[in-house]
Design a protein around this nucleic acid. Structure first.
Lengths: 213, 213
DNA sequence: CGTCAACATGGCACGTTGTGCCACACCCGC
DNA sequence: GCGGGTGTGGCACAACGTGCCATGTTGACG
């Protein structure tokens, strides 16, 4: 609940943050338009108004430039989950955190979702973009493990927690991808996420329905 | 059940397959020893006895060289699942296919598991290797969707099937990763996989256990 | 059996990626 | 105002990945 109104950033640090943001948004725009393959690192750098050398001081690879945008949603979700009161049942905790993370946030990251959607839509045709997406999912899953371990009271390296983190993150991912493929507002994403979490308990337990084969 | 004793490959085609295999195994060995970052494409090519140009005729990127090895397990699992008699309940189908895919196969790919383990162990320190692994998981999930859609009698692009493929694949991945981290034989991997599939129905449904905080 | 097309391979040049190094300019504390 | 720290740009370089052409071998056809 501690709202960090003034992170007390020095001028230089704020300029750095602005530059990083500028590069990220520029990269997202160019990637959405021409794909990652058709965009050179120099294109991003010049368009963002920095030199190529500076670009690589901010990001390890050309694709990493959009990683913070893609990771932002997951990061918020995990943070909210970590802030839930201990003792909260798992399913509501997951759903509430997802709703809060996907809602048009009172803070700022509402725009982030827009860029995310553009990137996700360019993704099927772009292996490089898929790699970044997978990496963010991997990081999110890793960040999820200690949080869920705390919530369920099991060690973070137990098979149960590993599985829980993997499946919960997968459900979130599927929901976001399904939302990106459609054209509903962020609320749609939250609904999809809730549906996904609720269905997690279903398919494997129920006996196979004898479809009209 | 059709055992392709003689795929009727021409001499040239067999040499090509052998070359590809040679490159893949060489890459796996070098990656396991020095990591992917510390291995140049030229290293792989020279060690495998081909030119750099030929290497890139077989694989799009340096990391892709080990992809067939990593993808082999998933491919077998999905194939076995696709061959399951329609009407089989989902859980036994998943478990049996996993056991058969991970068993020291009567065919050939037993050695493949050894290389896979070496690669998986080098993976935590090697972002490039992680990317290949994630890509194989992505492909496996995509291949899984139509198969599972058939098994449960739902459209392949329905949310249920998307989720089912994602979670089943995630469970398999977690099991294999846990096996690679330990030192049990492939049977251990199969046991882990079965445990994983069985636990899939648990954590989200059960009320949160009030651990000894 | 000879000839020729098809093709797998190697070598070369080139654009791009990503990094190490050095010089310059700007912000911050004395 | 003045030096130290630091963010930035320019340059050179190794590695990645591809297009192009030349060559040698395979395989089919007369």
């Amino acid at each position: 609940m501690a709202a960090p109104e003034r992170p007390a950033l020095s001028l230089t640090e704020r300029r750095k943050a602005a530059t990083q943001q500028e590069i990220a948004l520029t990269a997202a725009r160019l990637f959405s338009e021409r794909g990652a393959e058709g965009t050179t690192a120099e294109d991003i750098a010049r368009t963002a108004g920095v030199s190529l050398r500076t670009f690589y001081r901010y990001f390890r690879t050309k694709e990493d430039a959009v990683a913070p945008l893609l990771a932002d949603g997951s990061r918020q979700w995990v943070d909210l989950l970590a802030a839930t009161a201990p003792g909260t049942p798992l399913l509501p905790a997951l759903v509430d955190a997802a709703r809060a993370a996907l809602a048009p946030a009172p803070g700022r990251p509402a725009a982030s979702l827009g860029w995310t959607r553009g990137l996700l839509r360019a993704m099927p045709d772009d292996p490089a973009l898929r790699d970044v997406w997978h990496r963010t999912q991997h990081d999110a899953e890793a960040a999820l493990r200690p949080v869920l371990a705390e919530l369920v009271g099991l060690p973070a390296d137990s098979l149960d927690v590993l599985l829980l983190a993997a499946t919960a993150n997968a459900a979130m991912r599927v929901a976001v991808e399904a939302w990106a493929a459609g054209d509903s507002d962020p609320t749609g994403a939250a609904d999809l996420a809730e549906t996904a979490f609720r269905r997690l308990t279903g398919p494997l337990a129920e006996p196979n329905r004898p479809g009209p084969s």
